[in-house]
Write a protein that binds this DNA or RNA. Structure first.
Lengths: 343, 343
DNA sequence: ACTGCTCGGGTAATCGATTACCCGAGTTTC
DNA sequence: GAAACTCGGGTAATCGATTACCCGAGCAGT
C-alpha cells in the first residue's frame, strides 16, 4: 500500500505536477515526460488514491442508495438497474440496507452523508418515521426517492402510480367475473403499502363489488401463506384476491392450493411488481408490472438535475404500470366456459 | 454541505485542535470548552467529513465486498450476514456485484482499492479468470474469499466443504433407494460448481450406482427448468437428481411436475444452499444447508487477522454443511411403502 | 526561588492529488 | 529588436481532520 504520485514523479524524474498532468491528460506534457511517467506508474503499480482525490475535488464520484432490504427481489432488481444505469457515467454505488428499520435507515443515511456521496437514492422504509432523515439529507445533498416515498411530497420522487396499478388489477378481476374481492397486502407503514390499499378500496368501491376486510401483514412469502390460510379458515373464499406484491401473491397461491382451492378456477390472484419469480411460479402469476429499468433511468436522470436544498418545488414522477395477465386469473370467456358458480 | 471543524471552532471561540478534541473526546478539555463546542456543532449541523478523516487516518472504516450477483438469494443472504457481522465493529460495507463477469469484477476490485477500503471480501466469479484480480488485490489489502475461491489456494478462504456437501446429498438419495442418479449444476467456471460436480462424481462412483451424464448450465431457476425438461425428453428419468444449488432444484422440480413426473415418488431431488425459498417451494426442498451466519462471522474474523501481502500461508476454512431432509426426497421406509418399481 | 511536573490550549504539519500561479525559453508581430 | 504570447514545467496552496509539538500557567517539592 501507499505508492503515491510523489513516488511516481521521483521515479520518472519530474515534478508531481507533471506526473499528475501526464496521468490525467488534463494539460499537455511532452511525449517524453508522458512516456517516463507512464512507465514509472506501471512499474510501481501506482493507483490514484480516491480518498485524496475526493478531498481535493470535493466530489467522490459516488452515489449512495438505501433500500429497505436486499432480500426482497423487487429491491435487488431495482438496485441492479440503478447500478447499470450509473455505470455509464462512471459513478459508483454505495448500497445500504435499512432492514425496514427507520433507525438503521437514519444511521445509514448519516454515514453516507459523512462519506460525502454526490447524491442519494432512497426508498424510505416508513412513510412517517423516515421523514426527518430524508428531509435532512435532502438539505445536504441531491436526493431522489425511488419507489417508496415519505408523506408530504417535500422531496423528489420517481416511482410507479400505485393507485393506478391496483385499479388495473381490480378492474381486471372484475372483468374476469369476480363479485367479491379482498386485498392481501402489507400494513400501511410505507407509501406503497398505503397507496395500494387505498387504491384497492377506491377501485373496489367504485365497481360496487363485495369487499372483504383486507389482510394486512408484511411484503413476504410468509405473510402471503398466512393470508391464504386465513382466507381458507374463514370458510368462504372471495372470487379474487389482489395482492400488495408478488411475494405475497406467490405465498398465497401456494397456501390456497395446499388447502385444496384451485387457482384460478376457484379464486383469481393478482400480484404486484412482476420481478423475479412471478413467471416461474406455479401457475405463472398475473401481476402489475413495474417498469424497473425505466424507473431507475428516470431516477438517475432526475438526480443529475436536483440540487441540495433545492428551492424549486419537488418533482414527483409517477410512471403508469401495466397489467400482465398470466394464469392466476382468467378472462371472462374461458372463465365462464369453466363453469363457475360463484356469480 | 460544507460546515467544517474550522467553522465550529470559530463559532465556539476555540482553536480547531480544541474543537476536534472536544468532539472526539480523545484528549481532555475543560467542561466549558466541551459545552461550547458541542453547542456550536449542534447549531451548525456539523458532521465530520469522512473523506478528510480517512485521508488523515489512512483508514476508511470500510470494507469492500464483491459478489457475482445480488439477484441470487444465496449471495444476498450472505451479504446481509456479513453486513450484520460488520456493524458490531462500526465498519461499513461497500457492496459490488460483478455480474458474473471477471472483467467487471476486476474493475470493481480496482475502484474499491482506489477508495482504500480497509479489507476485501470477495466471492470470485471465475475460478481461473478471477485469479489475477484476486491475487493483485490480496497484495495490497487484507482479503478473504468467501464461498467461491480461485484455484491454487494462494489466498485465504472461508466457505463450505462443497465435496462433503454433495457427498451427503448423494448418500442420502442412495439411502432412499436410488439406483440411478444425475447431477444438475452449473458449468464448472466457479470453484463451487467444479467441486460440487467432482464431489458428486466421486460419491456416486464410490456408491456404484448408475450415473447419467451431468446437466451443466447456470445457477438459475431457468436452467433448472431446462434441465428438468431435458430429463423428461430423454424418456427415462433417473431415481434422483442432485442439484448444484436450490434455484436449479426449484426450477427442476417445477418442470418435472409440469411434465407429469411426481416428486419425490418418481424422482428425488435435493438442492444445495438452503437459503431463501427452499422451505417455501412446493414441495419443500430437501437440501444441503450452508451455515451462512457462521461463514460470515468466520470471514470477518479472518479478515481481521490477515494482512496485505501476508507471508504466512493462506488459511482455508471449510465448514462442513448439514443435510436438511424435507419433502423432495424420501427415506427408505416410506419410499418402499409407496410401491416404487424402478429398482 | 527554582526545577520539574501536569494540564489545557494553540499552531502548524500531515495525509495525497490537483491546480493556480509563476517562470523561463522559444516564437511571433510590428 | 522589443513587446506579447505560447508552451511546458515547477512550487506551493488547497481540501478537512487529526495530532505532534510547543507554550504558559499553576503547583509541588526541596
Amino acid at each position: 500500500m501507499g505508492v503515491t504520485i510523489h513516488d511516481v514523479a521521483r521515479a520518472a524524474g519530474v515534478s508531481v505536477a507533471s506526473a499528475s498532468r501526464a496521468l490525467s491528460g488534463r494539460r499537455k506534457v511532452t511525449p517524453e515526460v508522458a512516456e517516463r511517467v507512464a512507465r514509472a506508474a506501471a512499474e510501481l503499480g501506482y493507483q490514484v488514491n480516491a480518498v485524496a482525490k475526493a478531498l481535493r475535488d470535493q466530489t467522490t464520484g459516488t452515489i449512495g442508495m438505501v433500500v429497505p432490504g436486499i432480500g426482497n427481489p423487487f429491491f435487488t432488481t431495482i438496485v441492479e438497474a440503478v447500478e447499470r444505469e450509473l455505470q455509464n457515467s462512471g459513478t459508483d454505488l454505495l448500497l445500504c440496507s435499512s432492514r425496514y428499520d427507520p433507525q438503521v435507515e437514519a444511521r445509514r443515511v448519516g454515514t453516507l452523508l459523512a462519506r460525502r456521496v454526490d447524491g442519494l437514492i432512497i426508498s424510505p422504509c416508513d412513510i412517517e418515521a423516515s421523514v426527518p432523515a430524508v428531509l435532512d439529507a435532502a438539505r445536504r445533498v441531491p436526493l431522489v426517492q425511488l419507489d417508496r416515498h415519505i408523506e408530504g411530497g417535500a422531496a423528489d420522487w420517481v416511482g410507479v402510480d400505485d393507485e393506478a396499478g391496483v385499479t388495473l388489477a381490480v378492474e381486471h378481476v372484475i372483468a374476469c367475473g369476480a363479485r367479491s374481492v379482498v386485498f392481501a397486502g402489507s400494513r400501511p407503514v410505507s407509501s406503497s403499502a398505503r397507496l395500494r390499499l387505498s387504491g384497492f378500496e377506491r377501485a373496489a368501491a367504485r365497481a360496487g363489488v363485495e369487499v372483504l376486510p383486507p389482510l394486512l401483514g408484511e411484503f413476504t412469502l410468509e405473510w402471503g401463506g398466512e393470508a391464504g390460510r386465513r382466507l381458507l379458515d374463514a370458510g368462504q373464499l372471495p372470487d379474487a384476491v389482489v395482492c400488495g406484491n408478488d411475494e405475497i401473491a406467490v405465498g398465497l397461491v401456494r397456501s390456497l392450493r395446499l388447502g385444496g382451492a384451485r387457482v384460478p378456477d376457484d379464486v383469481s390472484v393478482v400480484g404486484f411488481d412482476d420481478v423475479g419469480h412471478a413467471t416461474m411460479c406455479d401457475p405463472p402469476l398475473s401481476t402489475v408490472r413495474q417498469p424497473v429499468e425505466e424507473m431507475a433511468a428516470e431516477a438517475v436522470r432526475l438526480l443529475g438535475q436536483v440540487k441540495a436544498a433545492d428551492p424549486r418545488p419537488a418533482q414527483r414522477i409517477a410512471i403508469t404500470p401495466k397489467l400482465v395477465v398470466r394464469q392466476t386469473s382468467r378472462l371472462p370467456a374461458s372463465r365462464s366456459e369453466s363453469g363457475r358458480d360463484s356469480g
